[in-house]
Amino acid sequence: MMRRLALAVLLAGALGAGTAFAYSDPSEVLPNPAEEARAEAIGRQLRCLVCQNESIEQSDAGLARDLRAIIRRKVAKGESDKVIIGWMVARYGNFIRLDPPFDAMTFALWGAPFIALGIGAGVVVLARRRGPTPAPAPLDPDEQARLSRLLEP
């Protein structure tokens, strides 16, 4: 029983780790659950500039904490998601967005799968156009004799 309980706790911990939020301070959380959910959704779209591979919602870096607080202040003031993310992008550039927009800088990033697909299609078309490899010329009598000799047990 104890072992099962321990396992359950461990599993719960492991599952929770994937979605863990790095609140170091419970007072960070907005009292209104709908507003808090919106703030978390915005925070999950923004990169922590310090650790660079976490969202600011997951990171415990000081800067991420400050940015979380700013998001919550803005959400409580009723600013739209677009305005809040725009405020962040104005300061930190599109790099702060974990989901970068399609623009002149990122077209290669978004277009790469299609470019690869195009190259593949080109190779297939070229190979088709060449047609099947012609069948090898039939063996002449000498070669036929050599082959028979080689194949003899």
């Binding site: 500039l49 310090v50 000081g62 800067l63 400050d66 940015l67 700013i70 300061r91 930190y92 550039g93």
Partner: peptide, 13 residues
């Protein structure tokens, strides 16, 4: 002290 001016600069460290 708040780090707010730094954020307006886009500072990350």
């Amino acid at each position: 002290a708040s780090g707010m001016t730094a954020i307006n600069f886009g500072l990350y460290g």
